[in-house]
Design a protein around this nucleic acid. Structure first.
Lengths: 208, 208
DNA sequence: GTACCTATGTGATAAAAGTTACAAATTGTG
DNA sequence: CACAATTTGTAACTTTTATCACATAGGTAC
């Protein structure tokens, strides 16, 4: 496992990785699993070894809103931020590609901040980058209409999968953006007419 | 100054407050001043001693979107999060009531994390509570229509000033929510008809 | 007082987004 | 192949929000 972690989390010191191996466990989940629900107690800090997770905000009436992806080499900022207090999760996490996760018990998360400089820097950097990502999400919904929000959404998915072929149905996009499928279908058609993409069943091919 | 800080930041240890007094400077700003603009370099971590600051997100076409208040006893999470890297500000800060600010040079911010347990806990807690506040803001724009967003906005202002008389013009509210004045005037009228508030020139009296 | 500025009220209209209803196309299954 | 389930396309309509135009009201300066 040492080499696997070293490769993905290249900033981690050897002693930190040793500590992770001694104290953390690896858990696997399958695509489609919901591994964290809003309101659940957080017991671990989560590092992603492989696979892909989508993080959502939920509202009271069952609405979902896509926030960001969790990918190999990344950690869940929410699970770090809740470390000290015995907090419940403010988000919902859905597995979209089978994942292997390193589960670090919360008390260690806090303890390592003082013991491992590379852990401290990783945690702070995770906070910072997620905070900035969430601010960009705020921009998109506060300032932009649905057509631009859709483009922003597609762009982020392109970045996340490093490919131009997005395996998404119109309904899934609509759910992620908390709007209706018809709206997305119409806007996608417009983007296709503009030559920005090509529509297929169950996937979207980005051209620009 | 020691007692002033001790009273507002009650969790700070004496040695931390001594370090603050030795290394930080107090700066004053007046209502209306913009003390931080988007894209400016951050040189200090900011603690608020008195007064009130509104934090905004800006877009390219001059739009503003109100994020949250900074108040006495609080610190600017953005200015902390940018500490390590030499980052620029992602937000704009407007003084709404004359403020006294403690300016801590960025290198110290990072150094104190290891030296003062009470500083470490304060910083982590500031991250956490701001992150959660921003997530609530996301909820309000992702899931709610303008009438509910307005109510959420008024409620937050009520909490921030601890009073029921909000000194706000319709135009200011519209700017903060990135919409138009007419929309706000009409929605406020509806709220008045429902008995939720009473409208006056330049201020709004909350009844519920 | 009058002139002027700012804040608020309101109607008419346009544009964007959400809803309803249903058709057509594609895929999977027995 | 027949049939069901899923995905996508689209028209008609409603609701919400934005924009334009202008009226009115309160406060300030002279």
């Amino acid at each position: 496992m040492h080499d696997h972690i070293k490769k993905l989390f290249s900033s981690f010191s050897s002693s930190l990785i040793d500590d992770i191996e001694k104290n953390a466990v690896v858990q696997e989940f399958n695509a489609g699993d919901v591994i964290m629900r809003t309101g659940q107690y957080i017991k671990n800090t989560v590092l992603v070894l492989s696979g892909k997770i989508k993080i959502y905000r939920e509202d009271d009436d069952g609405g979902e809103f896509f926030m960001y992806y969790l990918q190999p080499g990344q950690a869940c900022a929410i699970s770090m931020i809740c470390a000290t207090k015995n907090e419940t999760s403010q988000i919902m996490a859905k597995v979209v590609e089978d994942v292997e996760l390193v589960m670090v018990p919360l008390p260690l998360m806090d303890k390592w901040m003082m013991q491992h400089r590379s852990w401290y820097e990783f945690v702070i950097d995770t906070y910072r980058s997620r905070f900035e990502e969430v601010l960009e999400v705020v921009d998109s919904i506060a300032f932009r209409a649905m057509d631009e929000r859709l483009e922003f959404y597609l762009m982020r998915h392109k970045d996340a999968c490093s490919c131009v072929d997005l395996k998404l149905s119109h309904q899934e996009i609509a759910t992620d953006l908390n709007t209706s499928r018809e709206v997305i279908s119409r806007l996608l058609k417009k983007l296709e007419q503009r030559g920005a993409l090509k529509l297929h069943r169950n996937h979207i091919e980005l051209l620009k």
